[in-house]
Design a protein around this nucleic acid. Structure first.
Lengths: 238, 238
DNA sequence: ATAGAAAGTGTTAAATTAACACTATCTTGT
DNA sequence: ACAAGATAGTGTTAATTTAACACTTTCTAT
């Protein structure tokens, strides 16, 4: 137990300790056409060349992990006002073939139709259906699975689903989103009553256009009002 | 945005990238005398010398972060069968005065009367009431606060409170634990009914000894039975 | 034997959740 | 302009869950 004898004791010069590199990996979930997708990039490193990989990068000298994750989002989408949640650190000593690299995994949520992938990144970026991904570079499939589990958990206890939809959405779209991501069925009337009672949607007094049936009313999420209600003890739960 | 242009591209030789050190810090929560405490060690590093610090250590070359956290628990208590939950990575570039150090924060749960602090560590280890800690070394107060918040959240949705009590406990002890940690009041009869209906306690057919009033019946947590029930959809919630 | 102290126990009202089917409003085609 | 097709939108009732509440039992100490 010699390696533990200096627990929390003075850090020596850098070279005496384990040096490792630290990355962040973002599971960027996107939603479109009633399907949950994840943004991948083609891996260009052996032995994983050609396989889909998550978007990641090193944590830079002057930034923390959150900033690194936001930087990746900005790089891919031009936007850094994106929902982001840290999930877990992946740190198996052999997880990266080129050396000791730990990674902090995040997931984020975007509406695909409202997201323009930047040109620079665009060439090798792909939205893939979460269901259809079987194999990824590194331990990225494990990271994806962990983040998906976390997303499903958070979706039920925090009002974050809106981030997967356009700013303006119908109640039907919202319900379908929950049904697709959580793989459950919801009762239309009960779902609508619940949303009404939470009072966190703003009726935009506007309707869908260009649908060939009765158009649905559009709403937006009232995040300020929700924050106020939450701090007064409102519990969101689907 | 030049630093993002190689997102997820080949890792160069180690020296070209940001080198940093990685630690784990454990918020070891202990419970005794109707009080939630945290295990601290006296910091021996300037400028924090003498201040209470969390238990932490470097992640070693051949271990992952979870193993490092378990190693710390084993070092302090001689036991590594302890409830442990990863919480968050703390990675501000200036969080450590001696260089770039990121840390993965964990919390764990023990019953203080059932925990013997090892001699080696014991000399500078202290159980401190969570309420009374105002100031800690490094960013450890922030880590503590974050872990406490996470503990409170998990305590309501997972049956982990038992880890803070002796193996054998009374229903009153369990209720008080929830009341103390969550800072709420619970109705005795409703609490007991809920526990009874969950069917996750084993009646030990044994009683408290050496109390000067009617002794309470003792129970233990039936973790195997709970796991079975959980996978069949049982939702624990206090 | 009695007093003190905490353990243990059930019922009822209120709130929440689950189940369920029809009418309204739009578009498109004739 | 009328009819058919498609999806939006709406309320009631029974079942379940939660919240509120007070007295009896069993032990110890004197």
């Amino acid at each position: 137990m010699e390696s533990t004898s200096r627990i929390v004791q003075a850090l020596g010069p850098l070279d005496e300790e384990v040096k490792l590199r630290c990355t962040v990996d973002c599971v960027i979930f996107g939603y479109d056409q009633e399907d949950l997708k994840v943004l991948t990039i083609e891996c260009n490193m052996e032995p994983f060349r050609g396989m889909p990989s998550l978007l990641g990068d090193f944590v830079a000298q002057d930034e923390d992990a959150d900033s690194a994750a936001k930087r990746i989002l900005k790089y891919c989408t031009g936007n850094d006002e994106i929902y982001l949640e840290e999930v877990k650190c992946f740190s198996k000593p052999d997880r990266h073939p080129f050396g000791r690299v730990i990674t902090i995994a995040y997931y984020s949520l975007v509406s695909i139709p409202q997201t323009i992938l930047t040109d620079a990144a665009g060439k090798h970026l792909n939205w893939r259906s979460v269901d259809e991904i079987t194999c990824m570079a590194f331990d990225h499939k494990e990271i994806l699975d962990t983040c998906l589990k976390q997303l499903r958990h958070s979706l039920r206890e925090k009002p974050i689903g809106f981030n997967l939809l356009p700013k303006k959405f119908s109640l039907k779209q919202l319900q379908t989103l929950y049904e697709v991501v959580l793989d459950i069925e919801l009762d239309k009337r009960n779902f609508r009553r619940k949303l009404r009672s939470l009072n966190i949607l703003i009726d935009l007094e506007e309707q869908q256009r260009e649908v060939n049936h009765r158009p649905a009313k559009l709403y937006k999420f009232d995040d300020k009002s929700f924050e106020k209600k939450r701090s007064n003890g409102l519990k969101f739960e689907i």
